[in-house]
């Protein structure tokens, strides 16, 4: 592989009140790689993910995504964000639009795709996430799992190079988690580059190429799943896994 798709070097994030959210984070992600990020809450996982598309600004270091220097204030972040899809814990679907309109909105407004084309593509994406028959439903009429699948379709509608998942199943009822993970598993099989912040260790073990453990704003440990979940040589990770897998 040539250039990494995502390149982070010595990234720092410190809030105005002095709290350190990220410290000395360096990371390279290749095209097609599936990366899971785990760690206790407040460890900086979400902040790291949000730094990748500029939703969170950083205070030091470099973030380069898909050729865009995110840390540079001259970079057009809107152009970057067209190439980077994001899925949120709380879905954040647009409640005043139907499922189909949610998926169509960005392509029609940002890329000026003709409505008919956008509609056809949105329908195909809803089919893909198993909701082809729910296009006319409003978010409030859908279950959490269905909403999150629409949210994934919405992000895919921009045909991104990378997909960022910020705890996509944490707000779901346990029985709805599987349907969302299935969609993500299928995406991974298709070769999508994915960064997934998650507590679903089973998913990380089965799908990820690499798992990263963060604590206190730092990357403490990273390894392929076999090593990560097998015999990690790190006490903090061992303690964390002990807690989670209990």
């Amino acid at each position: 592989m040539l250039e990494p798709l995502i390149h982070l070097r010595k990234v720092e994030k410190r809030y105005a009140n002095g709290v350190r959210a990220l410290h000395d984070v360096s990371l390279d992600v290749k095209r097609g790689e599936v990366l899971c990020i785990v760690g206790p809450s407040g460890s900086g996982k979400s902040t790291l993910l949000r730094a990748l598309n500029g939703l969170e600004s950083i205070t030091g270091g470099e973030v380069v995504v898909d050729g865009f220097a995110v840390h540079d204030h001259r970079t057009n972040l809107n152009a970057l964000r067209r190439r980077v899809g994001m899925v949120f814990q709380q879905f954040n679907l647009f409640p005043h639009k139907t499922a189909l309109e949610n998926v169509m909105l960005a392509p029609t407004t940002v890329l000026d795709v003709p409505a008919a084309d956008a509609r056809a593509r949105a329908q195909a994406l809803l089919d893909k996430v198993g909701l082809g028959d729910r296009g006319a439903s409003y978010p409030a009429q859908l279950s959490g799992g269905q909403q999150q699948r629409v949210a994934i379709a919405r992000a895919l509608a921009m045909q991104p190079d990378v997909m960022l998942f910020d705890e996509p199943t944490s707000a779901l009822d346990p029985e709805k988690v599987g349907e969302v993970l299935d969609v993500m598993r299928q995406l991974a099989r298709e070769g999508m580059t994915m960064l997934v912040v998650t507590h679903e260790m089973g998913f990380a073990r089965a799908v990820a190429h690499r798992v990263i453990f963060m604590d206190g704003g730092e990357i403490v440990y990273q390894d392929a799943p076999e090593g990560f979940f097998g015999a990690p040589r790190n006490e903090r990770l061992k303690a964390f896994l002990g807690q989670i897998l209990k």
Partner: peptide
């Protein structure tokens, strides 16, 4: 909710587009 603006911006909409739509 803040997440609405974030979702819109993360899709590549600029501030005006996110506000309007």
């Amino acid at each position: 909710p803040r997440g609405q603006m974030e979702a819109a911006r993360s899709l590549g909409m600029n501030y005006a587009q996110a506000m309007r739509h």
